[in-house]
Design a protein around this nucleic acid. Structure first.
Lengths: 239, 239
DNA sequence: AAACTCATTATTGTATACATCATGCTGCCC
DNA sequence: GGGCAGCATGATGTATACAATAATGAGTTT
């Protein structure tokens, strides 16, 4: 807001676009700031998969030139969140049921590995960390607030990544999780999904706290696989 | 070589730099072409991990402007091959022993999943595909040509990715493999690494051809884990 | 009327100019 | 003599101008 009418490095007066705040660089670069905003917009579903991203439009909307926008696109392509078709623009990546199935298969394995490592490595005090999160999740089942449930669920899994003490694995798993986020959100709203999730989480917790790596692996693997199945059911209902 | 003095879209005569060919766009974009060349240079070890990438220098070397160079950097950052430190340039990613260990742990799991899926899904005819590759690898053990061995070894694993019939998993595994490529190459030259590899490959093949998913998983997992151990030994010898 | 061709237009790719920030050095002060 | 302030230099980030290609529509032809 403070650099609104100012941004005149040349004589041209910049037309102030709508509301979305010209993205003041809070210390980091414009391209990086854009990347974060666009990533959030994609994960939240404000930008639908398959929709085309117009460089000029976004540049105008955020009050920057095309250059940082283009760089942000490349950055997003790195996370596989957008697809760059040479000379034909960028589109929000749209994942078909087939690829989604493949992704969940991989994610199940990675999250399973997290759980296995966690079971081997958690200190006795870890229960004090995870229990409050789990309880908050339980409390949200009846409320029916799917978005809140989704967020706390994320915290639960994040806590397991931490416990696995493998930063690279955590990054990979998080990245994958982010890629399917736009689709997952919808599943949370399915009939018994929330209560099922709680039950599955409890099995995972039991195994980890009992230091049983194989059981933890299996429980987590099944949990994610079930979620994938639900998602595919959901998608099938639409076609 | 063929379009040397030509590249004049404006009136400026371009100074022809050294030898490295001005990168003729073979249909795709300059940035993409650069990405491929730089990726190859990194994987082959011509660009050492930790070395700084100077935008201007590379732009001059390839006879293009800084813009496509910057885009190529962003693209490479997507594959985690270079690190972008805002305002402080790009450097070839240098992976410490600790992270390398973490990466091999994940890679072992992913390659293990490939083997497991392959064991479940290979058609009876698959032996005719993999055997020739394996035999070529065996033939290379005594020759001592580590680079050739490395390449054929890659073919072997690639054939298993194919057999697993999960494109996303194949992409992920390949990407990870690429990230550690610059380090792996060195390990191939260790004393008994080649013959050990052959033995381990045979165990993997037996399990896959016998349609034993769990055995295939375990064999591949161990194979990759052993490689990781060897790599760490190698690095330790340097410090 | 349908399909093809060509011209127009809009969007992306590349080059260059400018602004901004990080780094290294010089010189002053303690 | 050592350390810090301030400036000079060089690199990165951003903006804009230009070039090239893909999408679009009008016009004509069969």
């Amino acid at each position: 807001m403070h650099k609104t009418a100012a941004g005149a490095q040349n004589g041209v007066i910049r037309i102030e676009e709508g509301r979305p705040a010209p993205s003041p660089p809070p210390g980091l670069t414009l391209a990086e700031g854009l990347r974060q905003q666009l990533e959030a917009a994609i994960a939240a579903g404000h930008l639908e998969p398959g929709s085309r991203l117009d460089e000029q439009e976004i540049a105008l909307r955020y009050g920057v030139s095309r250059t940082p926008v283009r760089e942000a696109f490349r950055l997003l392509a790195a996370s596989q969140l957008v697809e760059l078709r040479g000379r034909q623009g960028a589109v929000v990546r749209s994942i078909g049921p087939h690829v989604l199935l493949e992704m969940f298969q991989v994610m199940a394995e990675l999250e399973g590995l997290c759980a296995r490592l966690a079971a081997r490595r958690v200190p006795p005090t870890w229960g004090a960390t995870i229990e409050p999160i789990h309880q908050r999740l339980v409390a949200l089942v009846d409320g029916g607030d799917a978005d809140a449930f989704y967020d706390v669920n994320q915290e639960f899994h994040e806590a397991i990544y931490e416990a696995a003490r493998n930063g690279f694995l955590a990054d990979q798993t998080r990245r994958l999780r982010n890629q399917v986020a736009a689709y997952r959100r919808r599943v949370t709203r399915m009939p018994n999904r929330m209560s099922d999730t709680i039950r599955e989480h409890e099995a995972i917790l039991r195994a980890i706290l009992a230091h049983d790596p194989e059981a933890a692996h299996r429980a987590m693997r099944d949990h994610v696989a079930l979620l994938g199945d639900n998602l595919l059911d959901f998608l099938a209902a639409f076609e």
